[in-house]
Design a protein around this nucleic acid. Structure first.
Lengths: 332, 332
DNA sequence: AACTATCATGTAACCGGTTACATAAGCGAT
DNA sequence: ATCGCTTATGTAACCGGTTACATGATAGTT
């Protein structure tokens, strides 16, 4: 089925011009006479000619491919992140290739090798914890990369993200301002992501005589949130609020409560993290933290493209994330 | 920052071998002595050598890149679909590049041109409605492609998907078996996708003296579902069930009802379409249709890889999708 | 009329691999 | 000892572009 495509030399023969001129036309060089341009374009159509990207890359050394490795795509925060990257890249003629690491450093490294072998010119990585071999590989090859979804004021690699520590700390303070003192913190496994680690630490940093926390770890899913809620209900402390470090788990807490005829927020205030699409539509609407995932994606790839084109150094970037107050948190 | 990378000739010089031998080692050819192989591998490490993908592609004419164009990624059905494709491709050393079309034929065509210019060897398209120029472009260049998420028994292009018509028809029949006769069908805009068209037609085909339908079109979102529910409530007919052609809209119907102190399924039975993750966790759990998006993705790219490697012709594939009965539909 | 700047186009080297074909060495069979 | 086969390696052409440099034509300047 694959048909033979015309090459630049075919077009040159057809038009009686040299390949250099054809190349000029295809690249929109200005010093080509209008008639010549016309003739070349016509012949190109006729011969079904499109410049071969591999040949072009071979000399220019530019692939215009940027790679992203993400832990999972089945979480709308990442979906937004990817959408932001893809659309920003597309506007400037770049393409996104990506791979899913399943939060596994080994898989991430393998994926990076494959993407590098495809010609990726720069990488967007998630979080700040990676196989040292991966970092070394990218550094050795001189491939620029950034860490996203996290914020670190220093370190060799630029981070483009939000401050998980401060956000979680802020969330606890928010609950405290609403009158809560015994707060359950529901979260997923730390091994999967250093974002979780930072969020936990941030929450922990807010502990005081007036603010007492207990941590419940379960799988990062609705089911996991449900399990955590059951543990919470059995706990000796009567919690008045739960901070879920992901909306998905908050939904599980809702479910567990409705299964037990308990009412959010009367029996328990619930706060989430992520502001997923549906969080405003469940009942009661979930108080949560809106993460600027799309913007973060846009920003990460814009920095990388600027770097690739002009060598603009990549700056660390910090995005603010706002608490969205809704009905799931009750003022005591 | 980009460092000069070693080329195959550098490695040849370093080892005193010819470039042909280096190439053989890099490609795992068998007829190389173990000592030579060792020496080459060592020198490669030392010189920081990795074969240049563009140069390789230039001669082999294989990029191992498969492209997918999807309407949106911010819908977990597509996220699953993409995840299925990516992971299946990765296992065989292929990569996925993709673009988002926003359900716009123009954008889809532009994206395809870009992806083609990147070296995509085959395409996965969503649905069966596309710019004729796009189809012509792919055909002219001899690039294989498939349509997904739909099912058509004939036509030139293989479809890999499920039968939206039959599924919607089956859903209506299911509701009828549960005793419902006045059914509202809630759906998104048809212009965005021919899946919607097929689903609407399938529902329509089930109409009879005993089964009376009314269609409510709104934006494909939770908010849209809510609006549709409000229209439904104002409608002269008292509907006992709503079939939402997407779970997302079903959630909107739930919200509208709880805002009006109406109870699902007592006041209205609700059925969805897609079986999104959270559909089992909302209350009441949503009866819906489970779409095999991940499998579909796996299957589509497997067919394409087989075609690219052995010329295996691509067969149309049909996936069954099951109704998942949960508490949101009440037997009358 | 001679000189020069400008513009359109051509020439040819080069990018970094793969691979068909050639060659040489080693070994067993006759 | 000779022949033929196998195996490891080398030679060189080729893939399809880009681009520095060369060339020739045209127009403007004095």
């Amino acid at each position: 089925m694959t048909k033979k495509l015309g090459s630049i030399r075919d077009v040159a023969k057809e038009t009686g011009l040299s390949i250099a001129t054809i190349s000029r036309v295809m690249n929109g060089a200005t010093n080509v006479s209008p008639e010549t341009r016309e003739k070349v374009l016509l012949a190109s159509k006729k011969l079904n000619y499109l410049p071969n990207p591999a040949a072009r890359t071979l000399t220019t050394k530019k692939t215009k491919i940027i790679a992203a490795i993400i832990p999972t795509i089945e979480h709308s925060v990442y979906a937004k992140f990817i959408a932001g990257m893809e659309q920003t890249l597309a506007k400037r003629g770049y393409s996104l290739v990506f791979a899913i690491s399943n939060s596994d450093e080994e898989q991430e490294k393998d994926a990076a090798e494959k993407l590098l072998g495809m010609g990726a010119e720069a990488f967007v990585l998630s979080g700040g914890r990676h196989d040292p071999e991966l970092i070394e590989l990218l550094t050795r090859r001189g491939v620029q990369f950034v860490f996203t979804s996290i914020w670190a004021p220093d370190g060799d690699v630029p981070t483009i993200g939000y401050d998980n520590f401060a956000l979680a700390r802020g969330a606890i303070h928010h609950l405290h301002r609403m009158g809560h003192q015994d707060i359950a913190v529901v979260h997923g496994p730390e091994v999967l992501s250093d974002r979780t680690t930072w969020r936990k630490r941030g929450a922990k940093s807010a502990e005081s005589a007036e603010i007492r926390l207990a941590f419940f770890e379960e799988e990062l899913s609705v089911g996991g949130g449900k399990l955590a809620a059951y543990s919470m209900l059995k706990h000796k402390t009567k919690f008045t609020a739960a901070l879920c470090l992901s909306d998905v788990m908050a939904l599980g807490v809702y479910t567990a409560h409705s299964e037990n005829n308990l009412v959010v927020p009367d029996d328990l205030s619930v706060m989430g993290f992520d502001n997923l699409d549906w969080s405003v539509h469940i009942s009661p609407p979930l108080t949560t933290i809106d993460l600027p995932a799309r913007k973060m994606g846009e920003s990460a790839v814009t920095s990388l493209m600027d770097y690739l084109e002009d060598g603009t150094p990549i700056e660390r970037k910090f995005f603010d994330a706002k608490i969205i107050e809704r009905a799931s948190v009750k003022k005591l």
